[in-house]
Nucleic acid binder design. Structure first.
Length: 445
DNA sequence: TCTGGGGTCCTTTTCCTT
DNA sequence: TCTGAAGGAAAAGGACCC
């Protein structure tokens, strides 16, 4: 954490302020799609829907004979790999207007033009179709988003190596010891990162820099898109306290409703409550956390690499299935989910010993069951057997809309550990040439 | 009315052992 | 064998996030 004593260009440790950045890509999925289909700019576009949508598009394509020589084999069950390859060849015109779409699904994201009609993330596609029937519906292409994700993260670690991965479109970065990371409170380094990412990918992002992750996360939202916001401890009362409690990462709809029931709407109002009352009302852990968060305190470190705790696969059916009447169908899906989880584990070099299932009924209520077996496994048959045991402990009168399989209590396989020790350290080394370029970045923007 | 998929973390409940 | 307390692990549920 502290700068090395012998280094000539590091200021004395006492002068270094903790500077944590939160970087958030602007409208990530939609921006990636617009790179692929620039003609969609300014049109209402909705991204969402799943396999049904791609299958519809492929069917339409075949019907119109627009497909290339080797259309995806229509008879195979859903094969994500093949379908995605086919997806690349689908001309835009083949994708349905939202109004033509039939099937389940939610909107993952929508372009600004579509949002003007009132559609937005997490809305059901059927409802969105009523609000904006002319919107173009693109299927989600996670493979492609992950490709861009890897690219922009590689750029960041070249410049500032202490990066915490927080999912496909955001990261935390520790600026504290990066040369230049203290200049203008972090603004200079943030600008360099924004510029480098834009030049390499064509994508824009927003950055917040603050003394800790909690405040940095809030700051990155201040000037979206393409924004930079710098927050210091002294800004707490003016910049943070007027915000709604919901802006704190970790306060969701439930906690917010409970706070509101006590008349607490803003972070400032939350900060007025004393610790004892919060602990008594929200419990030990949550109470203490709420108190600290409202005062802008957060000591969590930037975590460079973390081990997964569980891996799972789940699927929502096209229509609700009945345990008895659709037994064959359900059983096939169940087995496939187990095989997929097993493959995921094997591919990533993990084994687990807690195997669980998740069911969602037609009334949207969910139940889970799990079972810890006496050895670690990544074997599909073993997982299927244990998951089958779990299934016996669950009521099956109602129709099911979702089925999932999860493996937890993970550990790395011996082979994967070996690979780690042989190749792990190199990528974390600081590339000093990249860092020294920071000295010349003042006039970049 | 409709509500995906893949995760993490926390709390409460249940079960087992001493 | 029962009864009760206590503690820990496993199981279940739920909130939250991207």
């Amino acid at each position: 954490m502290n700068s090395e004593p012998g280094k000539p260009d590091s200021p004395p440790a006492a002068l270094l302020l903790r500077r944590i950045a939160h970087l958030d890509m602007d409208a990530f999925y939609a921006s990636v799609e617009l790179l692929r289909y620039p003609q969609l700019k300014d049109l209402p576009v909705v991204i969402g829907g799943g396999r049904q949508h791609i299958q519809n598009a492929l069917a339409a394509l075949r019907a119109a004979d627009l497909a290339n020589a080797d259309p995806a084999e229509p008879e195979t069950p859903w094969d994500a790999q093949a379908q995605r390859a086919a997806l690349r060849r689908i001309p835009l015109e083949a994708f349905a207007r939202l109004s033509e779409y039939t099937g389940r699904g939610v909107i993952t994201t929508a372009t600004y033009a579509a949002r003007q009609f009132g559609v937005g993330s997490a809305m059901g596609l059927m409802k969105a179709a009523k609000l904006c029937p002319q919107a173009i519906l693109l299927p989600v292409d996670f493979e492609e988003y992950r490709r861009f994700s890897r690219q922009f993260k590689a750029i960041i670690t070249e410049i500032a190596p202490l990066m915490e991965d927080r999912g496909v479109d955001e990261v935390y970065i520790d600026f504290t010891d990066v040369p230049g990371g203290q200049r203008e409170g972090g603004r200079v380094l943030a600008r360099l990162i924004q510029k480098t990412i834009f030049e390499a990918t064509g994508l824009t992002c927003s950055v917040g820099v603050a003394p800790n992750k909690l405040l940095a996360k809030m700051a990155s939202e201040f000037n979206k898109p393409k924004g930079i916001a710098i927050v210091h401890e002294r800004d707490l009362e003016t910049l943070i306290w007027p915000l709604a409690c919901r802006k704190i990462n970790g306060i969701g709809p439930k906690a917010d409703a409970k706070l509101k029931s006590f008349g607490i709407e803003t972070i400032g109002q939350l900060a007025q409550r004393d610790l004892a009352w919060l602990v008594q009302t929200f419990g030990n852990k949550t109470g203490a956390w709420l108190h600290a968060a409202s005062h802008g305190r957060d000591e969590r470190p930037v975590v460079l690499d973390s081990e997964p705790v569980s891996m799972s696969r789940e699927t929502t059916f096209e229509r609700d299935l009945h345990a008895v009447r659709d037994k064959a169908n359900l059983s096939a899906v169940f087995t496939r989910l187990c095989e997929q989880v097993a493959l995921d584990l094997q591919r990533k070099g993990y084994q687990g010993k807690t195997i669980g299932i998740k069911l969602r009924y037609d009334d949207f209520k969910s139940v889970t069951r799990d079972l810890t077996i006496d050895h670690f496994t990544a074997d599909a048959k073993t997982i299927r057997h244990a998951a089958g045991q779990c299934l016996k402990r669950v009521p099956l009168e109602r129709r099911l809309r979702l089925l999932g399989v999860r493996v937890g209590a993970l550990r790395k396989t011996a082979e994967a550990q070996l690979l780690d020790t042989n190749s792990g350290v190199a990528h974390k080394k600081i590339d000093s040439s990249a860092i020294h370029s920071i000295a010349f970045t003042d006039q970049l923007f």
